[in-house]
C-alpha cells in the first residue's frame, strides 16, 4: 500500500497511456498540450502570489501572530488543531493564493513530513476559497439573498479544518 502510494504519479501516467492506446488518443500530444495549460494556471497564479506573499511576510513579522497567539491558541488546541496553522485557517476562506503562500511557508518551514506540514497540506487540499466561490456564484446568478449558503459553507469549512487536524494526528502524530 505504501509503495503503491509512492508510485501514484507513474502508475497514473501508465494507466493513462494504456487507456490512450486502446482509444487511439495521441497521448504525447495530450500530455504536452495539458502541460501548456499548467503553464497558463501558473501564469494566472503568479501575479496574485507576487502581491500577496510580501503582504503575508509583512504580517508575519509585524508581531500580530504573537499578539493573537494567546487568544487563538487555546481555542485551536481545544479543537485539536495545531496552533501553527492558525494564520492559514484565517486566510483560507478569503484568498486561495494567500492560503497557498501560508501553507507553502508551513510545509517548507516545518518540513513536508512533519505533522504541521502534513496538516497544512491536508487542510489546503480539502477546503476551498469559500467567500470567493460564494461571491462568484451569487454575482453570476444575480441572487440578492444567499439564504443559508454562507452558514452551511462555513460549517463545512470548520468540519474540514478539525477533521484534517484529527486525521493527520491519528495517522502521523
Amino acid at each position: 500500500m505504501k509503495s503503491l502510494m509512492a508510485l501514484t504519479a507513474p502508475l497514473l501516467i501508465a494507466a493513462g497511456l494504456i487507456a490512450a492506446g486502446r482509444r487511439n488518443v495521441d497521448a504525447f500530444q495530450a500530455l504536452t498540450e495539458g502541460s501548456r495549460k499548467g503553464l497558463d494556471i501558473l501564469r494566472d497564479m503568479f501575479p496574485a502570489l507576487l502581491v500577496l506573499l510580501p503582504a503575508l511576510k509583512l504580517l508575519q513579522c509585524s508581531g500580530l501572530p504573537e499578539m493573537l497567539a494567546p487568544l487563538l491558541n487555546p481555542l485551536l488546541r481545544r479543537l485539536g488543531i495545531p496552533p501553527e496553522t492558525g494564520l492559514l485557517l484565517l486566510l483560507r476562506p478569503f484568498s486561495g493564493s494567500a492560503a497557498l503562500a501560508a501553507a507553502a511557508e508551513l510545509i517548507e518551514g516545518w518540513g513536508p513530513e512533519s505533522l504541521v506540514g502534513r496538516t497544512a497540506a491536508v487542510m489546503l487540499g480539502s477546503s476551498e476559497t469559500t467567500f470567493y466561490v460564494i461571491a462568484v456564484y451569487l454575482a453570476a446568478a444575480d441572487v440578492r439573498h444567499s439564504r443559508w449558503a454562507i452558514p452551511a459553507a462555513l460549517c463545512a469549512d470548520l468540519a474540514c479544518f478539525v477533521s484534517s487536524a484529527w486525521i493527520c494526528r491519528l495517522l502521523w502524530g
Binding site: A9, L12, I13, A15, G16, L17, A19, A20, V25, A27, A30, L31, T32, E33, G34, S35, R36, K37, G38, L39, I41, L42
Partner: peptide
Amino acid sequence: SLCLWSGVMELL
C-alpha cells in the same frame, strides 16, 4: 510538477 499533472489530467 504542476505542469506535469496538468498534462496527466488532460490525458485522462
